[in-house]
């Protein structure tokens, strides 16, 4: 299949983008998972990354976060080229991601899951542990307070001392998002944050994503539920067969419905028009 030029398909990176990628390719064995994806995520936006199953969304997220290296192409954060950086260094720059299948740190408590994510941790250096215990204690105290209020905000406070592995699926989702928030992201990649979550919780997570935007965080989220996308996202990137099919404002995409539907079939069918 060759993707048509929808007019909106980007070739250049806009200046006020928080994150962008250019001509990303990735194959697994012979199969091309990503085949020239190019897009940018506007600063301060909530951008949706949509497309059919197997379109390469998760692979793109993995490449953006550095969990996976691409075969070719570049990843930029603002105007910094981060293509060569390992994932932990990208995270330190403020690029934090969640996973499609929750990746709770099961042998830690819920509270510890958040504490691990704290950005400033002098106690991770053993030198400080032995020689500057006061400094370590002070930083821990500040992180505890932050973790406590995030847990409260996400309704996990009462579960703080449970093993993370013992949480329900929905609770694990909330834990994963709150842990990402604890890491003080400037840019948040969410891979299907609402998958397998009940409708009430979907609204709640949507609310949290809005709060993050209000706090200045740029969000890129993979989402299949177009109702949710319409409600909370302002920008959309459509990925199909590893290629960027269209990008733009949600309203622009709606005008392109016919074309998009033709290429995405069942995924968008009957939902965009709602």
């Amino acid at each position: 299949m060759t993707a048509p030029d929808l007019g909106g398909a980007p070739t250049a990176i806009s200046v006020d983008s928080a994150l962008s990628c250019v001509d990303i390719h990735k194959s697994f064995g012979g199969a091309k998972a990503v085949n020239g994806a190019t897009f940018s995520v506007p600063k301060g936006s909530i951008t949706a990354l949509i497309g059919p199953n197997g379109a390469g969304k998760t692979t793109v997220v993995n490449i953006l976060s550095g969990s996976l290296s691409s075969d070719s192409g570049r990843v930029m954060m603002g105007d910094t080229d981060i293509t060569a950086l390992p994932s932990y260094q990208r995270a330190r720059l403020g690029l934090i991601r969640t996973f499609q299948l929750s990746r709770e740190l099961g042998g830690l408590t819920v509270f510890e899951n958040l504490m691990v994510a704290a950005k400033v941790q002098p106690g991770e250096s053993l030198m400080n542990v032995y020689l500057r215990p006061g400094l370590v204690r002070q930083a821990e105290k500040e992180s505890r307070e932050r973790a406590a209020s995030i847990l409260e905000q996400y309704g996990l406070y009462d579960l703080r001392d449970n093993w993370a592995r013992e949480l329900s699926g929905g609770q694990k989702r909330l834990l994963e998002i709150s842990r990402a928030v604890m890491a003080e992201p400037s840019l948040l990649l969410l891979d299907e944050p609402m998958a397998g979550v009940n409708p009430a919780l979907i609204d709640r997570i949507g609310g949290h994503i809005h709060e993050l935007k209000a706090a200045g965080v740029t969000v890129l989220m993979v989402e299949h539920n177009l109702g949710v996308v319409e409600k909370i996202c302002d920008h959309v990137i459509v990925l199909a067969e590893g290629r960027t099919l269209a990008t733009g404002l949600m309203s622009e995409l709606r005008e392109n419905t016919d074309v998009v539907r033709a290429y995405l079939g069942g995924v968008l069918d009957g939902r965009v028009d709602r």
Partner: peptide
């Protein structure tokens, strides 16, 4: 002292899931 420190906590995090721990900015 080691195992009760933030160092020990991050080490256990990497034991449980190294990729997720790296994604939180840990080497």
């Amino acid at each position: 002292r080691i195992t009760n420190s933030p160092f020990g906590r991050t080490l256990r995090a990497s034991r449980d899931d190294d990729e997720a721990t790296a994604a939180l900015g840990k080497n």
